[in-house]
């Protein structure tokens, strides 16, 4: 078997390389086409900007990606990002800001709002994981319920007297700096996203958790008879996803300098779409970190590129929808076998 594959290797390599990296080619193609039509798209500032916007999306996609690989799904991702953003924002308002949510809140160490956001995400993730692992509720339903619950919770959190529901603004400079500032001329957001990407890569490829996730997604029966604890890994994957949503929420609040209770709405669908574009199989067991990141970049290049090209809002939607389906159609060919 192996010798056979090696013998055929060189001949097949170019076609194979193209097929394996079809998604990267799609991304490059998009960049080139948009750049040709509107050269300013290729400005370094604009490309950096796309990366900056992609950062938050990528972190969410990496969280959902692991769950998808394990044959799960997470519809509550977007709302959890929103919840975390609101919690982070509420704890990072300036002292002199007139409409502070918590009037008497002292200035907290910078880490507190971030940790609070991570905590919110982790909590939601653990709840999702528990419902899926112990109550055996199908992930689609469990996280659908959680999506609704989280929205209720965030609205409850933000809608308090005397101001009532309000956008949270007046965030501290040092907090917004996380999302808008640079370190060594590289935007913080991009650095954080790169770090998260690296960590996720290591977890998925070099830890037991990661390998188990692929195994459970690829063949749950095999995992069970091999003595892999399905509940434990389920819990961990949802918790990890939740943690990333929490981080994404904090970063989103920092980047936009505020938060409202409808932040993050539908982000889960964008993230799932990005993962699927990047070759993550919704039937489990297949997907790479590189693919997820590429998927996110395709999405954001489109988002930005279509605006730069001046495409009307309605056509933007149609084009994006077509690209999602087309990208997956191209990518899935490597798994489709003739019956």
């Amino acid at each position: 078997m192996s010798t056979l594959a090696r013998a055929e290797g060189p001949r097949r390599s170019i076609a194979e390389l193209a097929s394996k990296n079809a998604i990267v080619l799609v991304l490059l193609g998009l960049v080139l086409v948009i750049g040709a039509a509107r050269p300013s798209f290729l400005n370094p500032e604009n490309l950096v900007n796309i990366l900056r916007i992609s950062s938050v999306r990528a972190i969410i996609a990496l969280g959902v990606g692991g769950i998808l690989i394990m044959r799960g799904t997470d519809l509550s991702a977007g709302r959890t990002v929103g919840f975390a953003a609101v919690v982070a924002a509420s704890l990072a308002q300036r002292d002199d800001y007139a409409s502070k949510l918590f009037k008497d809140l002292p200035m907290l160490p910078l880490l507190v709002p971030v940790l609070a956001a991570l905590g919110v995400g982790l909590l939601v993730g653990l709840l999702n994981g528990s419902v899926v692992a112990f109550l055996k509720v199908p992930p689609f339903i469990a996280t659908l319920g959680m999506m609704v619950i989280v929205y209720g919770a965030v609205s409850l959190y933000v809608d308090r007297p005397p101001m009532g529901a309000q956008p949270l603004g007046g965030l501290r400079e040092d907090f917004t700096n996380i999302g808008t500032g640079d370190t060594l001329t590289i935007p913080n957001l991009i650095l954080i996203a790169a770090l998260v990407t690296l960590v996720t890569y290591v977890i998925l490829n070099r830890t037991r958790l990661g390998k188990n996730v692929y195994a459970i997604g690829g063949n749950p029966e095999a995992a069970v008879v091999s003595g892999v604890s399905v509940w434990r890994n389920t819990l961990l994957v949802y918790a990890f996803g939740g943690l990333l949503y929490g981080l994404a929420g904090a970063l989103l609040a920092a980047r936009t300098g505020g938060a409202t209770n409808n932040y993050g709405q539908m982000y889960e669908l964008d993230a799932i779409a990005a993962c699927v574009i990047g070759g993550v199989s919704t039937s489990g067991g297949i997907g790479t970190v590189g693919g997820m990141i590429t998927g996110v970049l395709i999405f954001e290049v489109l988002n930005n590129g279509l605006v730069v090209l001046g495409v009307s809002a309605y056509w933007q939607q149609i084009v994006k929808g077509i690209i999602i389906v087309a990208a997956v159609a191209i990518d899935i060919q490597k798994y489709v076998r003739k019956r």
Partner: peptide, 25 residues
């Protein structure tokens, strides 16, 4: 120069504006 819908949303508006700053620097 341009108009686009950002669905009343702050992050979306930020993204659209950033793209315009590129297109109409």
């Amino acid at each position: 120069l341009a108009e686009d819908t950002a669905m009343w949303d702050r992050p979306k508006a930020q993204e659209k504006m950033a793209a315009w700053l590129t297109a109409y620097a």
